[in-house]
């Protein structure tokens, strides 16, 4: 079995988000980058499925050389090899196209990614890759079982879940529950240095979308404190002042 796992390089979750160049660019100065937490879940499940020589896991990232530490982290967690598509990931459409083009060369049985990246929150890549490759895509899964030919997945829906089965190639985007994120071991970190990280040039594609400006949410006014003894007053305020109940 061959599994391809998409790895996105994102700012650490504690990052204070600021912008430069007249709010047109994300300010990366002093920002610590990490493997997108959801991609870590996808990677961990891929490694579990391939345990005991059942298959190999390839990590793929679309990024310039600054993302290499993140890819090495994925190798340290346990991916067998990695590919970097050498381009700044313009948008999800571009990124998905690059991943799909690479996937065509590899005969992968399944492709896994995270439910969304925590920077642009595009939950787009999985379904776009699925469409580019004309294979099923199952978004936001909580569980993934595989028995050689058929995958059984649990997909999140409003107020519940849906069980989906797929035979043949597919792509899925993973959320919490699919696997416990694995932590690199010392041996993993050592071996990651010598694992193959192939660099492939990007394929050009017409632009369809671009971010023109970032905005930060307007700050809220000062908090209105209600004394604990008068908690009941809160209900009045929510009704008559905030008008939300």
């Amino acid at each position: 079995m061959k599994i391809l796992v998409c790895i996105s390089n994102v700012p650490d979750t504690t990052t204070k988000i600021t912008f430069t160049n007249d709010n047109t660019q994300f300010n990366t100065s002093g920002v610590q980058f990490i493997v997108n937490p959801y991609d870590e879940i996808a990677l961990s499940r891929a490694i579990e499925l391939c345990e005991g020589g059942k298959g190999t896991v390839t990590a793929i990232n679309v990024g310039d050389s600054s993302t290499d530490p993140t890819i090495r982290k994925a190798l340290a967690i346990g991916a067998d090899d990695a590919v970097r598509i050498n381009a700044v990931p313009r948008d999800a459409y571009f990124t998905a196209y690059q991943i799909a083009e690479y996937a065509k060369t590899g005969d992968f049985d399944m492709i896994l990614c995270g439910r969304e990246s925590i920077d642009y929150n595009g939950a787009q890549v999985a379904a776009m890759v699925g469409e580019f490759l004309d294979i099923p895509s199952i978004s936001i899964i909580k569980k993934l079982d595989y028995d050689e030919t058929t995958a059984t997945l649990e997909r999140e829906i409003e107020g519940g879940k849906e069980v989906v089965s797929v035979t043949g190639k597919f792509i899925a985007s993973c959320a919490e529950g699919v696997a416990e994120p694995k932590i690199p071991t010392m041996r993993g970190i050592m071996s990651a240095r010598t694992k193959s990280l192939q660099v492939v040039e990007a394929v050009e594609i017409a632009e369809v979308a671009k971010v023109v400006k970032f905005e930060t949410p307007a700050p809220r006014g000062a908090v209105k404190q209600v004394p604990a003894e008068e908690a009941a007053k809160l209900i009045d305020l929510l009704h008559t002042e905030a008008k939300v109940i």
């Binding site: 642009y120 929150n121 017409a206 979308a209 971010v211 400006k213 970032f214 930060t216 949410p217």
Partner: peptide
């Protein structure tokens, strides 16, 4: 964008 920490004004050029 950025998990509620910001908004991204996105231009659709297609």
């Amino acid at each position: 964008a950025f998990s509620g920490k910001a908004f991204a004004v996105t231009e659709l050029t297609s």
